Structures are given as structure tokens and as C-alpha cells.
Amino acid sequence: MKAFFTDEQLLHDPQQFMRLGRISKPADLPTRAHALRDALAARDIELVQPRDYGRAPLEGVHSVDYLDYLETAYALWRALKLPGVEPGIEVLPNLSPYHGGTPGVLRAPCPSPSIVARTGYYISDLSCPIGPHTWRSVLRSAHTAVAAADAVLDSGDAAYALCRPSGHHAHRDRAGGFCYVNNSAAAAQRLRERHGRVAVLDLDAHHGDGTQNIFYARDDVLTVSTHADPSGYYPFYTGYAHERGSGAGEGCNLNLLLPHGAGNELFLQAVDQGLAALRGFAPKALVLALGFDSYKDDPISVLRLDLDAYRRIGEKIGALGLPTVIVQEGGYMVEAIGSALDHFLRGFEALR
């Protein structure tokens, strides 16, 4: 299996994370990528550096004004000159403008040129600080997913994208939940250039709200997300069973909710439901958005999977036999995510 990563993805080094009204230690640390890289090396899987694709692959899933914002936000923030106020060390919003838009439909660009206004418009929460190297890291993380998709298009087999920062909470024009650009969506869009039907299966503790939003009105990409009940868990506002898509995409979105505290068996039952929907859709290729924040000891999880669950998930995905791009999403217990990836790959490759 080919795997893709570049050290430029380590440049994003957030200093702040607001949780329950407290500035907390950031969860998306560069050491996450170190642990995953070590797990691949132990399996003799070489990491290939993706080529620089520029912004073009992202413009199929994100608005141009949003990408412009991400690319320029830090420099504009540091250039702010307000009387008696020094800008913070990272770009963070202090506004939350109401948005009642339709999923799958782009908002108009931010009506104000102010970097303060644009930050409130394009960043949905306080988990997505933008530092001096954030744009380069998130761009190269997306390139990792695109390179994996290209490898799958060439081989018809599988490839792994060690994406960090993650992406499945990034909407067309909004960052959130440690995610700035949607790596899984970029990979799906890349596969879609050749294949008529593509599926995204999101197996993370959190709902893949950004991915759902991007494809919600399309019938060429099936989105399935298995996640903890969002009524008491991030992202709170989406991820419910009644959300089935709109317009041409009606019926092409499926959310499978799990009670908080669910362990292996309930999660695997939900995976089976998702795979049944996938088989009915009959995609020609698959993007697996794979998170390990469902692990029982993860610091922000409400699910209780053990390592063997990831091996069994790997077996189920491997048995599909589909061209598959595996995109890394969450997982914040650095001591466990390498073992989780190893167990997944052991199961995946056994039935491939």
C-alpha cells in the first residue's frame, strides 16, 4: 500500500483551544502525525511526499473567497492596527454571525473586507486558530489526500493519506473542529473525475458535517457517517437521522447515530448498516474517513472502542474490494493512535 505525508503538515502548531470556557492545551498536536508515521514504518510502509498541486483540487469543494481568506488571514491579522489593542498570537473569531443557509448551497462571500469580520464569518468555533504556518500545513494535508486519490486511480487498489490537520468538519466555506479544508471531500472529488459514483464512509467519533454539507445536494457522491449522538456532542447542529440530502441528493446522505458509551458491537453494527447502504449505491470507488477518537481512552471521545474494533473495521472495509482512499481524520490519544492504525491495516490487508 502506498502512503502519503510531508513534514510541512507538522508546521501547524496551534497554541490555543477553547473548551468549556477555558483556554486549554491544544488537542491537534504535531505528535499525532509522528505516532501514525511510526506505525507505518513498523509495517515497512514507505511515506511518499505528495507533489504540490496548488489550490486547484480544493476549488472543486471549497469557495474561492474562503480559500483566499485562509491563505491571507494570518498576515492580515498581524497587520491589524487598532487603538489600545494588540492582535493575539493566532487568528481567532470573536463574532458568530447567524447563518440559516441551505446545506450544499454556497453562502455569498463575506460582505465586509475587515479581517475581524471575515474571521467570524469563515471560522465557526475556537478550535481552529490560524498561525503563521497554518495555511501551508492545511494545503499540504489536502495534497496528501489528493495524491492518495491519484495513486488509487492509477492502481485500482488502496492508498493511505496521513492527513494532519484533519478535514471532515470543514464546510465549503467554514472551518471548525480542528479542520480547515476537507481532505476527504477533495479525495472524493478527485475520484469523481473518473468514476461516476463515489462513496465517503466516515468512521469517526464525530459527525462528518463538513463532508455532508459539501455533497448534500449531489447524487454522485454517497455520504455515510457513523458517529456519537450529536445532541450532546460536537458538532451538535447536524448529524441527525432525518438528514438525507436535498434536491438531486435526496437519499444520498445517511447518518448512523450511536449512544454515548457505545462499544465495539454497537459501532460495528452501525458500520454494517453503512456498508449495506454503500452496496445499494454501488460506488466505483470509496473514500474512508478514518478517525481513532472513538477509542475508549481518547481525551475527547464519548465512545468506548478498543483496538480490536479497528482490526474488525479494517476487515469489513478490505472485504469490499473497492478502490479505496483511506484519509486520516481524528484521534487525539497520541499513545494509542499508532496501535489503532496498525490494527486497522492488519485487518484491511488480511482481506484485501
Rank of each mutant, 00 (worst) to 15 (best):
A199D: 12
L256G: 03
L320E: 07
I326C: 14
L82E: 12
R194K: 14
A33M: 11
L203I: 14
A108C: 02
V327S: 06
I300G: 08
D204C: 00
L288K: 11
F236A: 06
A340T: 01
G239W: 05
A3D: 04
T324I: 02
T72C: 09
L303T: 15
A228T: 04
L20Y: 13
I300L: 15
Y180G: 05
V181S: 03
F267Q: 01
N182M: 09
H171L: 11
D65C: 13
A147N: 12
V138K: 00
G321V: 05
N213C: 13
L106Q: 00
S96C: 03
R43D: 09
C179T: 05
V325I: 10
S24E: 15
I214E: 05
T102W: 00
A108S: 13
S184Q: 08
N182R: 09
G208T: 07
S225A: 13
E250C: 10
N182L: 02
E90W: 01
V116P: 02
L126H: 10
P50A: 14
S155G: 05
D154E: 15
D44S: 13
N183D: 13
C252Y: 15
R118N: 05
P30R: 06
G314Y: 11
E46M: 03
I317S: 08
T119K: 01
L322F: 12
Q49G: 07
D272M: 01
I23P: 00
A270S: 14
P26G: 08
A276E: 15
L320H: 06
G321F: 05
L47Q: 08
Y233L: 14
H12R: 13
G210H: 05
C128I: 02
H343D: 07
R43V: 02
E8P: 00
A282S: 14
Y233N: 15
A276R: 14
L322Y: 10
A241R: 15
P132V: 09
G196C: 02
G321L: 04
S155N: 05
G347Y: 04
A75N: 15
L254P: 00
R190D: 01
D173M: 12
P299R: 08
E71C: 09
S141C: 13
H206Q: 04
Y98H: 05
K2M: 10
L153Y: 13
S127K: 03
A149F: 10
T102P: 00
T238N: 14
R118G: 04
L275N: 06
A350T: 03
G249R: 06
A289R: 01
L341W: 10
A241C: 09
H169I: 09
L341M: 14
S339P: 00
P103F: 09
Y121L: 07
Y310R: 06
C128T: 14
F236R: 10
T324F: 04
R32T: 12
R279F: 04
L92C: 01
L40P: 08
Y180K: 08
D125I: 09
R140V: 15
P30N: 10
A188I: 06
V327C: 08
D297Q: 14
A148K: 10
A35D: 02
A217N: 15
A175D: 11
T324V: 07
R172V: 13
E329F: 07
Q212D: 07
R164M: 06
L322G: 09
Q9W: 06
Y69F: 15
A285Q: 02
Q328N: 06
P26V: 03
